[in-house]
Amino acid sequence: MSPAETSTSSAVTLNINGEKHTLPVDHRTTLLDALRERLDLTGTKKGCDQGQCGACTVLVDGRRAVSCLQLAVAAEGREITTIEGVAQGDRLHPVQQAFVELDGFQCGYCTPGQICSALAVLEEHAAGWPSAATEDVRPEAGPPPLTPEEIRERMSGNLCRCGAYVSIVQAVARAAAQTTDGAKEQVA
């Protein structure tokens, strides 16, 4: 047993933004605190630490998850994407670009969580997942139109106190249109 392996701590290897990090963690350490306090990945925010605000949203194996409700030791072997891994070098992801251009934030504290959520929303929508705002939920109906109502509903796990929802919805809609156009271009 290494010094890191005690009854209260373990060594874990976390795969974050395509990079592996091995570190000893207190068993009580959440994935959120491991990112922020241990790996200096402070882009993921702590707004409530109890799964109510969405500021700590990251992608775990491609799906959005609140990292405050996940223990770091339980995240071993998962592919984790944080806000720091969203842009391609200097090139912002279309979702990030749309947030900047349409002012989809003010204080910026909920923003990384909003953006990670939005990335997952686009995937979930493309995969045909319905939401509470979806009128036709039959599997054969396919993805519903990504209306403002759909975006509002799907983005409601991420609170924004500055009141930037109106432009967040616009930003997600713009990014969705761009990524869909991009996909069409690729197909053509």
Partner: peptide
């Protein structure tokens, strides 16, 4: 005009009070 710190806020680079090591 978009925010000067906009890029930092959408990439997670902006550091808040409890994020300076």
């Amino acid at each position: 005009r978009t925010r000067i710190e906009g890029r930092d806020k959408v990439t997670g680079a902006a550091r808040y009070a409890s994020e300076i090591p």
